Computed example of a mutant assay.
Amino acid sequence: MSTNTVIHRIVRPAVRAVAPTGVTPNHITTLRLATGMAAAAAFAVGGPLWPAIGGAIFVLSMLLDRADGELARQTGQSSPGGYWYDIISDCASNVMAMIGIGIGLQEVLGLWGPLLGLVAGVGIGTLFWQLFGLRLAQPRGWEPSPGIIIDPDDALILVPILVWIGAAVPMIAAAAVVTPLAALWLGLRGSRPDLAP
Rank of each mutant, 00 (worst) to 15 (best):
A14M: 09
R16Q: 12
W84E: 07
L184G: 02
Y85G: 08
E70L: 12
A182M: 13
S93H: 06
R140F: 10
G110T: 14
I88V: 12
I28G: 04
R73H: 13
G46P: 01
I57W: 09
I172K: 00
Q130H: 01
A92Y: 05
V163Q: 03
V95C: 06
T126P: 03
S93A: 14
D154K: 08
I172L: 04
R140I: 08
V45R: 03
H8Q: 10
V15Q: 05
A182V: 14
T30L: 14
A38L: 15
D86A: 09
M1A: 12
P144D: 11
P160Y: 12
W50H: 08
R9Y: 04
V18L: 14
L49E: 13
G81C: 04
P180V: 00
G102D: 04
L188I: 02
C91V: 03
G55M: 07
Q106A: 15
V59P: 08
D86P: 09
L115A: 15
P13K: 02
A155G: 12
G190Q: 00
G100S: 00
I161F: 15
L188C: 03
A41Q: 11
G141V: 11
V11R: 08
G22H: 04
G190K: 00
P170W: 05
A44M: 00
T5E: 11
G123W: 03
S89T: 03
P144Q: 11
L64Q: 03
L162P: 06
L118S: 11
A38S: 13
G82Q: 06
Q77I: 08
I88R: 07
G166W: 04
F132L: 08
V59H: 09
G46K: 00
L181T: 00
L115S: 14
I101V: 14
A19N: 09
L134Y: 07
